[in-house]
Design a protein around this nucleic acid. Structure first.
Length: 428
RNA sequence: GUGCCAGUAGCUCAAUGGCAGAGCACCUGACUGUGGAUCAGGUGGUUGUGGGUUCGACCCCCAUCUGGCACCCCA
């Protein structure tokens, strides 16, 4: 690293192979979202800080957002999340929109945090929401979308689990244990941290909170009870709907899933890798008061967000992310036999492009071995040689670099032959 | 924002105060009409950056940047 100016902390350079993976993720997100009838939308990346003043967690705005004055002196923010923007967009056209809304988005977000593995300052996030319906079946639809995303990628049930809980259920259980309302936020934190602390520390934390021995005992019973969901009419309906939607293999009830954000009111869920090696892959839930803070009438909704960083880490670990070479946009390389034939190669490349075949042409004459090696390096599937022999006989030599086989075909039939090769190759 | 660990060739890592090295990768040749294999040779470094200590610093000290771990928070 001589005199190269470094990239900013927590940002990533997307080299073509990285970009290929990001776009692969985007394509899968799009196809799953659209398969459930969701429409893509997008908001500004820059927002007024006032938009976040009412909503979000206090910390998210005050501690974790990029905020700076523009040249006019107004404080603006690089958006740390999409929900406030969504709320505004819905409120602005509340009378004009056809509810229920099914909207999704995939774009960049920024948070001023200390980077770690799976956590950067600039990241991409899939947001998807169903707005205007307040039913357990709507909750199930969002969970089913997450499950379908995993299934479509080839994730096996059990490799990644979607863990589901319900805040109202936990609240009524806390009430049944006579845990006073003012203690419950602390108890939620306690539950959230069970896996992060030693049993002894966790126990001490509970007592410090002010829980009685009986309450602590009851809490532990709750967290060990995998049938607790049957006491929640909402969850009973949600799980029945998940069954009908074919999502059950990816979904489990988990009483310790709470989620940090205050605005969740009912069912909440998170996806985790089996080993718990990474952070949560996605998280979401039901909120019942989306737009009133930005001036609209209250609307119920359910949605989730998935960051690209953890998702890509986990999918790489599972061997699901394809080799970027497979995603190469230039599967065919036309070689240049000698300087005097450069334009012949250009003409051939043009012919093929006009027929709809993506083609890169070597830009100058060079040894064939060098050009074939280059074809290998850029992930080309096919190399075409056009030399004096082929020119004289009105043919081209077409080499399948994956199979190592070459055929000399009449130039008139080259397009057809290439289409077959490309189709068979992408199928494998 | 707090504490801790790390940073040496494109990558993975050696060298512990005394000549900056290896493997892989890359380039060239064997191979002037054919990629991956093999063999031979070669390029590549202000040791993250800036100061300090020392006859001498990759090594010790200070600062700073970046990455990672735990807090915090969450995608």
């Amino acid at each position: 690293m001589k005199n190269i100016i470094q990239s900013l902390k927590g940002t990533r350079d997307f080299y073509p192979e990285d970009m290929a993976i990001r776009n692969w993720l985007y394509r899968n997100i799009r196809s799953v979202s659209e398969s459930f009838g969701y429409q893509e939308y997008e908001g500004p990346f820059l927002e007024s800080i006032a938009l976040y003043a009412a909503k979000s967690g206090e910390e998210l705005v005050k501690e974790q957002s990029f905020v700076f004055p523009d040249r006019g002196g107004d404080l603006i923010t690089l958006r740390p999340e999409l929900t406030p923007t969504l709320a505004r967009m819905v409120a602005q056209r509340q009378r004009a929109l056809a509810f229920p809304l099914r909207w999704w988005s995939f774009g960049p977000f920024w948070r001023y945090e200390r980077p770690q593995k799976g956590r950067t300052r600039e990241f991409f996030q899939w947001n998807i929401d169903l707005i205007g319906v307040d039913t357990p079946e709507a909750d199930a639809e969002l969970i089913a979308i997450a499950a379908q995303f995993l299934r479509q990628l080839g994730v096996q049930p059990g490799q990644i689990n979607i863990l589901v809980n319900n805040r109202r259920l936990m609240d009524s259980e806390f009430a049944a244990l006579n845990i006073p309302a003012e203690l419950r936020p602390g108890v939620l934190r306690l539950v959230d941290r069970r896996d992060k602390m030693s049993p002894a520390d966790w126990n001490a934390y509970a007592i410090e909170l002010g829980l009685t021995a009986a309450q602590f005992e009851g809490l532990q019973r709750l967290l060990a009870n995998n049938d607790l969901w049957q006491k929640s009419p909402e969850l009973v309906r949600t799980f029945a709907a998940l069954d009908a939607l074919g999502a059950s293999p990816y979904v489990r009830f988990a009483p310790h899933i709470i989620r940090g954000l205050d605005y969740y009111t009912g069912t909440v869920f998170e996806a985790w890798d089996q080993a718990g090696e990474f952070r949560a892959i996605l998280g979401g839930g039901r909120y019942d008061n989306l737009v009133s803070e930005v001036g609209g009438d209250p609307l119920p909704g359910v949605g989730f967000a998935m960051g690209d960083v953890v998702a890509t880490l986990v999918l790489k670990k599972l061997g699901i992310v394809p080799d970027p070479a497979v995603l190469s946009p230039a599967p065919v390389l036309v070689t240049v036999f000698e300087a005097g034939m450069l334009l012949e190669s250009f003409e051939l490349a043009n012919e093929l492009r006009q027929a709809g075949i993506p083609v890169a042409c070597y830009p100058e004459a060079a040894k064939l071995s060098r050009q074939l090696k280059f074809a290998d390096r850029i992930g080309a599937k096919i190399a075409i040689v056009l030399g004096p022999d082929e020119l004289a006989s009105g043919s081209v030599a077409i080499k399948d670099l994956h199979l190592g086989q070459q055929a000399v075909v009449p130039r008139a039939g080259a397009v057809q032959y290439l289409r077959q090769l490309l189709a068979s190759d992408s199928a494998s």
